[in-house]
Simulated scan of single mutants.
Amino acid sequence: MNIIFLTLVEINSIEDRGIYQDLLRKFRDEGHDITIVTPVERRKGITTNFKEKEGVSILQVKTLNIQKTNIIEKGIGTLAIEFQYLSAIKKYLANKKFDLVLYSTPPITFAKVIEFVKKRDNATSYLLLKDIFPQNAVDMKMLKEGSFIHKQFVKKEKKLYKISDTIGCMSPANVEFVLKHNPEINSNKVEVNPNTIEPAIFNYSFEEKKTIREKYKVPVDKKVFVYGGNLGKPQGLDFLLETILVTKNENAFFLIVGDGTEFLRIKEWFDNNQPKNAKLLQRLPKEDYDKLLVACDIGLIFLDKNFLIPNFPSRLLSYLEMNIPILAATDPNTDIGTIIEENGCGYKILAGNQVEIQNKINQLLSSDLKQMGLNGQKLLLNNYTVDISYNLIMNKLKHV
């Protein structure tokens, strides 16, 4: 089967680890022909190009800067990407026919590209819904509900849902949200298709973990609560910083590892407050990040308390993969915390409730973390491996 994957994620190698690379590698290893259409931002100075690499085809499309840039260029770049992708596909993939168009949000602006391939090739379309936009921008007060631009984005969102033969959502709460706010969608075409990975095995001895901690000057005699990943407004990181200041338990140490729009503000906070119980590290290469993560004790998930959409951060999978328990401070609408608690691999609290998070921190410090980590590993293997996503997608194609 010939598959074209459209994404805003910059994919240079299918052998890298990540939710999209892992899934595409599974399709390749099962004998399917994969073509990845991926952006290369103008700051890289690389023109649009097509290459075959590691058993897949990669079409890099030159775009404006759409990640880690100002909101104006990001907005224009996101709107322009539809036409840039369409032009590149017509030029480089004119003679290649596809059976499946696979794509993820963000963005919601791929409709014309999807329609073109569907009509030309009589292809099936499958949306991996990773982001509910524009509602998330409204929740973060980045977009005014009912404004002209908001209405335009809602039209694009509904068009994307309409032309998608199947919409794969990250969790049951996401399915419920999509159907509630889009009653015109046939419920039969919406299903749970979660973030999934090909789990790696990390067996590190106490001495190896100690060496890793020493390398990054992280205390070896404390329980390390690690927050890893994107540092942006959606994460509601002010509550994490407040938690660091309020936590008096001497056995707790906080480690923040990541990058994003809020990194410099967080660094300034660390410079001003000089917390003795916390450390900030800028983004690390994936291999180094994984090693550091496995040397930590408890994973942290933070989401802004104002979210109406049920976010389901993929960092959950990293923590489960490392066999470490999770503490999730979120809005009341996501079901990620409920899933964590129901499977005995951590605790949830409402973001902003400092009394509650202190209780859970103290509870975790006196809990059997090893057993909770094993519970998390079981949750991962039963629900979040690439085989699950692959089989869901293939099952839909069998019934076309």
Rank of each mutant, 00 (worst) to 15 (best):
Q60F: 14
V175W: 02
G45A: 11
G75V: 13
Q371M: 13
N122L: 10
Y227M: 10
N333S: 05
E198R: 09
E242L: 07
K222D: 04
N323C: 07
K74L: 13
P199G: 11
G344H: 11
K215R: 14
N122V: 01
G258T: 08
L327K: 01
A80L: 15
T47C: 11
S205N: 05
I89D: 05
L381P: 00
E15V: 10
I81N: 08
K279S: 09
T247C: 14
R43Q: 12
L317G: 10
K141R: 13
D29A: 07
T48H: 09
L350F: 12
Y384T: 02
K378N: 13
Y92N: 06
Q84I: 08
L100P: 07
F254S: 03
Y126V: 02
E207L: 13
V218L: 12
S314Y: 11
I393W: 03
R25H: 05
L317P: 10
R120E: 02
N49E: 14
I266C: 12
S104E: 14
E54L: 08
G376R: 10
G232A: 13
E250C: 00
T38W: 00
A329S: 13
Y227E: 11
P107F: 08
S389C: 01
D16E: 15
I4T: 09
I201R: 12
L380P: 03
K162D: 13
I212D: 04
I149E: 10
L350A: 12
A88N: 03
I36N: 10
N272S: 14
Q84V: 05
K378Y: 09
I301N: 00
L379S: 07
K396Q: 12
I36W: 09
I3Y: 06
T47I: 11
E157W: 03
G75M: 15
E82S: 14
R17L: 07
P332Y: 07
L374V: 07
N136A: 10
Q274N: 15
L264G: 00
V178N: 06
V224M: 03
N395C: 02
G75K: 07
F302H: 04
I197T: 06
F153Q: 08
K398W: 01
D297Q: 04
P234M: 00
K68D: 15
I163Q: 06
E207Y: 11
Q354L: 15
V355R: 12
T338A: 08
I76M: 08
Y204I: 04
N249R: 08
K276C: 05
V218E: 05
E30S: 15
N395E: 13
G346Y: 03
S389R: 06
N382Y: 01
E176I: 03
N382Q: 15
E198L: 11
D331S: 15
S87D: 12
R17Q: 09
K248M: 09
M372Y: 01
F302K: 06
I339F: 09
F202Q: 04
K156L: 13
I256C: 08
D121K: 00
Y319W: 12
V56E: 09
F5K: 04
E250I: 07
K210P: 03
